[in-house]
């Protein structure tokens, strides 16, 4: 489903991603962990081209973006982006639109689906994330957990092949984390391919097919949760896990 080869990204002098190679199979849930500044969020943002890598290739669902060539076509960037749905740490809902309008926006404006059809679909998605009774609420009328669930529904609205989560629960009050993780687990069970950057180790343990440990711009270690959490090979992984647990 996803195939990444030799991905490099620098911000000025600072090299954030130092040649990432990664293959992800369809329907897998990948959780990326690592210290802050290790490059995991940048990596995720590269997957939907919010950051444009300096070198390497990304293939998603058979479509390839080659960053080794000089100039990228704007339309190809926009098209490639719709292959993935992004859930942001700070939700980034559109404050001037209701929950329903937030979810409808992509289908109506980008996919050019009729409003009635899009509305029907959006209501279904919002029902799925447990917000059937909040469709006409504006973001500021919703709790953080509810806003993030709208964020997930909005990302699902464009029918992405892969869902990307950038620390989706980091901005939430502790008691609201559970409702968002539950929605994410439901998605995982339905067979959605997911790449999740998170500090929620319980979620990583319970829902991930594979854990990837990022450190200093490279993938330091990868493996099934059981293995990484109980018997990490790398010293750095061990130390990171000790510190956060």
């Amino acid at each position: 489903m996803i195939n990444i080869k030799n991905l490099h990204k620098s911000f000025g002098e600072l090299e954030v991603l130092k040649g990432i190679n990664l293959e992800i199979e369809k329907g897998k849930v990948i959780v990326m962990i690592g210290p802050s500044g290790s490059g995991k969020t940048t990596f995720l943002r590269c997957l939907n081209l919010l950051e444009i890598p300096n070198a390497g290739t990304i293939e998603i669902d058979g479509k390839v973006m080659d960053f080794n060539q000089k100039k990228l076509n704007k339309k190809s960037i926009v098209d490639f982006r719709s292959l993935t749905g992004m859930v942001f740490q700070n939700y980034n809902l559109f404050p001037h639109k209701t929950a329903l309008e937030n979810v409808m926006e992509g289908p109506v404006i980008v996919k050019k689906i009729s409003k009635e059809h899009a509305r029907e679909k959006a209501v279904k998605l919002l029902t799925k994330v447990g917000l059937a009774d909040k469709v006409n609420y504006y973001p500021h009328q919703l709790s953080g957990g509810q806003q993030q669930r709208v964020g997930i529904a909005r990302a699902m609205g464009i029918e992405p092949k892969v869902m990307l989560f950038d620390e989706p629960t980091s901005a939430l009050d502790p008691e609201l984390v559970g409702e968002v993780l539950r929605v994410m687990k439901d998605l995982a069970q339905e067979g959605m391919t997911m790449v999740v950057v998170t500090h929620e180790m319980r979620f990583a343990r319970e829902a991930a097919d594979e854990i990837i440990f990022f450190d200093q711009g490279v993938i330091m270690e990868r493996g099934v949760p059981e293995e990484i959490f109980t018997n990490p090979k790398e010293e750095r992984t061990k130390r990171f896990l000790e510190r956060i647990q």
Partner: peptide, 27 residues
């Protein structure tokens, strides 16, 4: 308008012009 609003527009597949018109200018 926070940069995250542009990114949210881009992330659902909008072009620069669509994000500007639908998301940024109204705010």
């Amino acid at each position: 308008i926070p940069k995250g609003q542009w990114e949210a527009g881009f992330s659902i597949g909008m072009t620069y012009t669509q994000s500007l018109k639908r998301i940024i200018l109204p705010q």
